[in-house]
Design a binder for these strands. Structure first.
Length: 319
DNA sequence: AAGACGAAAGTGGTTGA
DNA sequence: TCAACAACTTTCGTCTT
């Protein structure tokens, strides 16, 4: 169905890898993220049988949380519907109706504004539609639960997006959210935690591997280095080296080591910048990696640079 | 000069009494 | 609610390339 043929703009390769769930297209040869927001081709609105051609009508607008009320609306009924009610109930009815109007117009206004902001940010971050949809849902729930009170609308939007990204394994760093929303990173983290706690959204700790393609692409590292980094992370995970640590730090250190081993050296600062951590954190993770995994390869590489006088085995990459 | 390294002090969040 | 604690950051001085 998705029948467009693409070449990697970096190396011209046709060997592209499609990750539909992440909305990413990754070049297997050079690791470039070719396109990180794919058109969602299989979202095809139902058509009925071809032979009864006249009946190809759709059944209303698509149900989406990106519209403020999911395209539906519920009202407390009109006055003429309740002519049989007694006076007391009538009064109650009118009170409810009044409240409903107040609340719903307030919520409506809020949602309209918030969802357009949300759309702006998610297109800035090139998030796939599934994530945009999810964050809209989260935000809507948050508003309905009154969680925005005392917080800025923007920070809740940012928190909702962050949560949705995590939930869909398309993690963005807090810094990226901060940059695109203009909200302080800590503030986003706070509201994020608050929102997922209040809405009882369970989010598993994000896997460092999920960050690798994007970071590697930004650093222009090739696919070999990238898969080496993934390999390192998985090895580290098997020895419980990754628990409790920040996933971005691990991803950054793994990439740093992998780049070193493949002769594509990047400075710690460069890696730190794209990963949104400091050099110190990379060094700490890096040290742990070297001491807990096999570091002989690393040492051999360095020895080769030191004029490699006597023995040099040319084994670079295998497990 | 630039990059890598590491010590020391500070920050914000989690946990457990 | 408070204190201990771990992870991470900031800052800064030293060493290596």
């Amino acid at each position: 169905m998705s029948m467009y043929v693409k070449r990697c703009p970096e190396c011209g390769s046709l060997n592209l890898s499609y990750h539909h769930d992440k909305g990413e297209v990754i070049c297997r040869d050079c690791g470039l993220v070719v396109e990180d927001k794919m058109v969602d081709f299989d979202q095809e609105w139902r058509e009925f049988d071809g032979d009864t051609g006249a009946q190809k009508r759709r059944t209303g607008s698509p149900m989406s949380y990106r519209q403020f009320d999911k395209g539906l609306g519920t009202d407390v009924g009109r006055a003429e519907d309740i002519y049989k009610l007694d006076g007391k109930t009538k009064n109650k009815f009118f009170r409810l109706r009044k409240w409903q109007q107040r609340v719903s117009t307030a919520i409506e206004r809020n949602l309209k504004l918030a969802l357009s902001e949300l759309k702006r940010i998610s297109s800035f971050l090139k998030l796939p539609e599934s994530v945009e949809e999810e964050s809209s849902r989260i935000y809507t729930l948050a508003v309905q639960k009154g969680l925005v009170r005392g917080r800025s609308m923007e920070s809740v939007v940012a928190g909702a997006i962050y949560a949705a990204c995590r939930k869909h394994d398309v993690p963005r760093t807090l810094d990226e959210l901060a940059e695109s929303s203009g909200i302080d990173r800590k503030e986003i983290g706070r509201t994020y935690r608050f929102v997922i706690r209040e809405l009882d959204i369970k989010i598993l700790p994000s896997n460092p591997v999920d960050y690798i393609p994007r970071f590697a692409s930004e650093l222009k590292l090739n696919a070999l280095t990238q898969s080496k980094a993934v390999e390192i992370i998985e090895e580290a995970r098997s020895i419980a080296l990754t628990s409790g640590r920040g996933p971005t730090g691990i991803a950054a250190a793994a990439l740093y080591v992998a780049a070193l081993l493949h002769g594509e050296k990047r400075t710690q600062r460069a890696v730190a910048d794209v990963a949104g951590v400091t050099e110190v954190t990379i060094r700490n993770r890096y040290k742990e990696l070297l001491s807990e995994l096999d570091l002989e390869e690393q040492i051999k590489k360095k020895k080769k640079k030191l004029k490699g006088e006597d023995d040099d085995e040319e084994d670079v990459d295998e497990e």
